[in-house]
Amino acid sequence: MSNRTTLTDLRGMDAGQASRLPPAHLALLLEDAAALRADAKHVSDLLADALHRRYGRVAAERRQAEGKDTGRVRFLDAGFEISADLPKRVEWDQERLAAAIATLRSWGEDPADYVATEIKVPESRFTAWPPKLQALFQPARTVGTGRPSYSLEQAEC
């Protein structure tokens, strides 16, 4: 029998109880959770590949019959309705978009009627700007935070 806290034990705790566990237990639980995520990803990828091998050809034929390259098609297999989705992924060349927008303006059109424009400022550039430039952009800047993360490693004594 072990004093080690398992993921099963952890599932029965709330965050307050878990926060009181010894760092050694937390470190082992983090390792266990990482292994579980890796295993789940492997299994999920394996299933996705298996489903594509089994239904990819049929789905492609259905899409072709429906006159579409992407999107969702449905068909039956052994009493199951299979829904096969091939999402469309569109990427836009930023330089060519800028040129197209300039052409719209030269035609007297308002580009906002046709395209959504999002201006981004990389944080590394903002922090490198001189204070006068930072002050100009500061009112448009909101700083938030992401989810905190922690790692635990045995200290070398």
Rank of each mutant, 00 (worst) to 15 (best):
A50K: 11
Y55D: 09
R4Y: 03
K120I: 12
L10S: 00
M1Y: 11
F75L: 06
A84L: 01
G79R: 10
G79C: 11
D39F: 05
R20F: 05
G108H: 12
L10R: 00
M1N: 08
M13F: 07
T142E: 08
L97K: 08
D49E: 15
L76V: 08
N3M: 13
F75I: 04
T70L: 14
G146Y: 05
R57I: 12
T145M: 07
A140G: 02
R72N: 10
D45H: 13
P87K: 01
A65Q: 13
T5M: 02
A34H: 08
T70H: 11
L76I: 01
P122C: 00
Y55L: 06
L76W: 07
A40W: 03
E95I: 14
G71L: 01
R62I: 02
L47W: 09
P23R: 02
L30Y: 06
A78S: 14
E153A: 12
T142P: 12
T127Y: 08
I101S: 00
A38E: 14
F75K: 01
K132Y: 04
E95R: 14
L136Q: 13
E109V: 08
L7H: 05
Y150R: 13
W107H: 12
E153I: 12
A100S: 00
W107D: 14
L133S: 12
L10M: 00
H25E: 09
Q17D: 02
L97S: 11
L30Q: 03
F75A: 01
R11C: 09
R54S: 14
A38P: 03
T70F: 12
P87N: 02
R89G: 06
L46T: 14
K41F: 13
I119H: 15
E109H: 13
L152A: 05
R72H: 03
R20A: 09
L10E: 07
Q64A: 06
G12M: 08
G12S: 06
I119S: 12
V115R: 06
G146S: 08
L76F: 12
L36R: 07
W107F: 11
L47V: 10
M13Q: 05
C157F: 15
A140D: 15
P122Y: 03
Y55T: 00
P22V: 10
D32E: 11
R62T: 10
L104G: 00
L86I: 03
D69R: 13
R54D: 12
Y114A: 09
L86R: 00
A18S: 02
L136K: 11
K41G: 05
A99K: 01
F75H: 02
C157Q: 14
A102L: 09
A59N: 04
L7Q: 03
A60K: 04
R105A: 06
G146K: 05
A155F: 10
V121E: 03
G67K: 05
P111H: 01
M1E: 11
G16E: 12
E153Q: 04
